[in-house]
Amino acid sequence: MSNKLEINGLECIRDNRPIFKDINFSVKSNQTMLVRGKNGSGKTSLLRVLAGYIKNYSGNILFNGNNIKNDKELLSEFRFLGQKNTLKGNLSVQQNIALWELIYQVKSDTNEISKILNIEQILNVDINSLSDGQKKRISLARLIISNAKVWLLDEPLVYLDQDKIDLLQNIILRHNKSGGITIYSSNTDINLEYDSSIIMDDYVVL
């Protein structure tokens, strides 16, 4: 199945301050897009607008030709992974995954997820005793269990070492192959493979 996300003339103004303006791009199934820019250039805001958090914007966001504004059915196809890792510190990895399943109304195969993320050994360990990198890796499970079509990753590479970046790369490729779209933000030089990119600093699309 092929999907297409099209953004036309997107503009966001908050507290009378323009966060970004005139953003145009389009991403298709099996593509990854990188959002680049300095701190405070509006990368996170752009992803939050796409995720349906910020509704106060002008311009069009079309998913498969339909405007996503106020369309809850379409918006639920977007999955946002932010800076907070969405983990409960006093619970084990497995319990955390079970809680996400309740939020997203899905049943998933924990064994398969732990194999993909390489977390089999720590499945019954409390989150509090894990390192930041491990937490980040576990938070990726939230993407895998949900069958959302568009993944929006905000700075996914923070805390990850090279092995884990390769792991994330594989997860993203796997998602994209099944018709998914991935958009991620980053301001480091080490990056995942991407098909197109956009620089937020001067509102120019490459």
Binding site: A51, G52, Y53, K72, E73, L75, S76, F78, R79, F80, G82, Q83, K84, N85, T86, L87, K88, G89, L99, W100, I103, Y104, R142
Partner: peptide, 17 residues
């Protein structure tokens, strides 16, 4: 508060229910 701090509140709200 606890759901807010660890980001679960965001996840719940973004299910668009």
């Amino acid at each position: 508060e606890s759901d807010y701090e660890d980001g679960n509140l965001d996840a719940i709200i973004l299910t668009q229910k």
